[in-house]
Write a protein that binds this DNA or RNA. Structure first.
Length: 409
DNA sequence: AGGTATTCACATGAAACTATTCTCTGAGTTAGG
DNA sequence: TAACTCAGAGAATAGTTTCATGTGAATACCTGT
């Protein structure tokens, strides 16, 4: 019999957290430290809407976890408040293009926008033009300024091209009463480089960059949040510094730093400790990685899993060879495809074409499960040299999940 | 020896196809008056 | 006669196939010494 009582007791005692919400990733703090300059800039760019004028289109860059979304949300709530106060007709709508269900096609973005404006549209089945017109009519009902914020706009453009943005920009000429301003947020700094110059110039009438936080700033952010989120004295010296250093190394991602701290706290709590010490940061880091990978592996499609399985098997094979005659040999796309075909036969699955497998390998790379380099072996052609990123005991776990799910041995 | 041309084994791109999901429409059916 | 049902048409999407083109360097092939 497990000691449930003990578990429950320690949960009730809740020895570490004071207010956990505060370090959860969806928490919106009232103060955003080290971003005053950017916030001021954005605010002054957007301010004209209060006078009923269209504000310049704005483009915001910055890596993940640099406070872009937070800042813009903060500003828009303040702006809305002010607008209400003085009775200006302003609508500010925020759309996150990354959330898959919300918007990753032109159609869905329009649908999401319409929904934000308080109307319904069918999820699919209508011609895009119709949805477009509906959106137009909805906005043009009265004289107003509409500001649309596209978070992670690079995702959309990558998927559906720049035409969409272009037509949104051009929309203004079709509107008789209302006016639209666009705000694009991207974490890909090179995003603007290779898009249609017409779109580029009109989208980025103004540009603001959010630089990554450095370790000191991260420490500061962590400190303020920690004071509210954790009980006094529950964080050992050096923990925050280490957390900040970790995150600073990963391009100054504050969200990541906070996650790290929270998970560390949770781990410590689960073990019934009253203090978070340095070792928990490492453990938390591992756990976050681990959970992410396991989640991807479990939820991947069957074909995905088949290919990953092939790669795992090849990796093991290569490891073995290495031990035997210390030939450091790598494996390539062709190897993966051959083994994959065998596995397909074994599991009675229709194999995909090499073309598709090649794409899936790229996707696995993007997800961070594998890594490859495109190399040329001269006379023996050009291919990708593939290696699994997953290490140690996690491999076994992944292998097991794959085997269970695929029904192979 | 040194320079060029080939050639391999895929990478990378674009377009077209397929299965599925969803709406809308209008004909046919039903139930109630 | 109004309300309901249900099949078919049309649209969008994700996942894939088909066809086409690109590519870096080891190797084969020359060339002149």
């Amino acid at each position: 019999m497990a000691d449930l009582n003990g578990i429950f007791d320690s949960a009730v005692r809740n020895s570490i957290f004071q207010n956990k919400e505060i370090i959860q990733s969806n928490y919106i703090p009232e103060a955003i430290p080290h971003r005053d300059k950017q916030i001021e800039q954005i605010a002054s760019i957007m301010a004209p809407v209060l006078r009923g004028e269209k504000c310049s289109n704005l483009f915001i860059y910055g890596k993940t976890g640099t406070g872009k979304t937070l800042s813009i949300q903060h500003i828009s709530t303040e702006l809305k408040k002010k607008a209400k106060e003085i009775g200006a007709d302003v609508r500010i709508e925020y759309i996150n293009c990354k959330l898959k269900k919300v918007a990753d096609t032109e159609y869905r973005i329009l649908a999401a926008l319409i929904e934000l404006l308080g109307e319904q549209v069918a999820e699919t089945g209508l011609p895009t033009v119709q949805v477009y017109n509906k959106f137009l009519n909805l906005i043009d009902t009265k004289k107003q300024i509409v500001v649309i914020i596209f978070d992670e706009i690079d995702q959309v453009v990558q998927k559906i091209g720049t035409d969409f943005i272009y037509s949104l920009i051009r929309l203004n000429s079709e509107l008789s009463k209302a006016q639209i301003s666009l705000i694009g947020i991207s974490n890909d700094v090179t995003f603007l480089d290779d898009i249609d110059p017409r779109v580029k110039s009109s989208l980025s009438e103004e540009e603001i960059v959010f630089p990554p936080y450095n370790a000191l700033q991260l420490q500061d952010i962590l400190n303020t949040r920690t004071k509210m989120a954790f009980k006094k004295e529950s964080i050992e010296k050096g923990v925050i510094e280490k957390c900040a250093a970790f995150a600073a190394r990963e391009h100054g991602d504050a969200r990541r730093a906070l996650d790290l701290l929270r998970v560390a706290g949770e781990l410590a709590e689960r073990e019934g400790k009253t203090k978070v010490d340095l070792s928990y940061i490492d453990k938390a880091n591992q756990k976050i990685e681990r959970d992410k990978i396991l989640d991807i592996v479990e939820t991947g499609t069957r074909q995905f899993q088949l290919i990953l399985h092939s790669i795992v098997q090849l990796t093991k094979r290569v490891e073995k060879e290495k031990v035997k005659n210390k030939e450091i040999d790598r494996f390539y796309t062709g190897d993966v495809y051959n083994l994959y075909q065998e596995v397909c036969k074994e599991t009675r699955t229709e194999p995909l074409t090499q073309r598709r497998v090649s794409d899936i390998i790229s996707e696995l790379d993007m997800l961070g499960l594998i890594r490859f380099d495109v190399i040329s072996k001269g006379r023996h052609g050009r291919t990708r040299e593939i290696a699994l990123v997953i290490s140690g005991n996690l491999i076994d776990k992944v292998e097991k999940i794959l085997k269970d799910s695929l029904g192979v041995d």
